[in-house]
Amino acid sequence: MRTLFCLVTAIAVMSLAYWAYGENYRTQASLDQARNVGRQITAQRERLAVLRAEWAYQNRPDRLRDLAELNFDSLGLLPMTPEHFGKVDQITYPLPKDDLTIEGTVEVSNMEDLQ
């Protein structure tokens, strides 16, 4: 009986060791994958920072002004001046529509009716 108990215990210990060994490798693989994703995120953030810097460089007002002057014949763009802007009181708003009258009764349901 004692031999059987030792044998079962040894098999249980070996099984648990095998399971722990597999879990260790799966954990290491998951950590490697997480590190790779972190590196990719860092690389994409750096790329985004470069793209934002390029966008800011390409949209410099002096550069855009020079481009507008160079292509005036084909585009007809004029530089922005304060006269191009209006005041709020110069905006014409649409008149409210009077055809939204409701005739008769309107049934309204609430949550109690739905249950």
Rank of each mutant, 00 (worst) to 15 (best):
E46M: 11
L77H: 08
L31E: 10
Q28C: 03
P61T: 02
P94F: 01
L48T: 04
P94S: 05
V106Y: 08
E107Q: 09
L78F: 07
Y25C: 01
V108M: 04
E83N: 00
D73M: 07
Y25E: 09
N59A: 07
T101E: 05
E46K: 11
W55R: 14
D66F: 05
I102N: 01
G104D: 04
R26F: 02
M14R: 06
Q28S: 05
Q58H: 10
A29D: 09
W55A: 14
T101M: 07
G86S: 07
A29N: 11
A49D: 11
D113M: 11
R52G: 09
W19L: 06
L64S: 02
E46R: 13
G104P: 00
M111L: 04
F85H: 07
A20W: 07
R45S: 12
V13A: 10
T9L: 15
P94H: 02
L31A: 05
T101I: 04
R39A: 14
E54M: 15
A10C: 15
L67M: 12
A53T: 14
T42R: 02
I91M: 08
R65C: 00
G22A: 08
I102Y: 03
S30M: 11
D73I: 05
N110E: 09
A20D: 01
D32L: 12
A29F: 07
K97P: 00
A49K: 03
V50D: 03
G104K: 02
F85N: 03
R65M: 03
Q58E: 11
F5A: 13
G38Y: 06
M80F: 09
Y25W: 06
T92C: 06
T9E: 11
A56D: 13
F85I: 03
S15A: 15
T9C: 13
G104I: 02
Y57A: 09
G22Q: 14
E103S: 13
T27Q: 13
L114K: 12
F5R: 13
D89P: 00
W55Y: 09
T9M: 13
V13I: 14
A53H: 12
T105L: 10
E54T: 14
L70R: 12
N59F: 01
A29T: 09
G104M: 03
G104F: 01
P82G: 02
T9G: 08
F85Y: 15
P94K: 02
N71F: 10
N24Q: 11
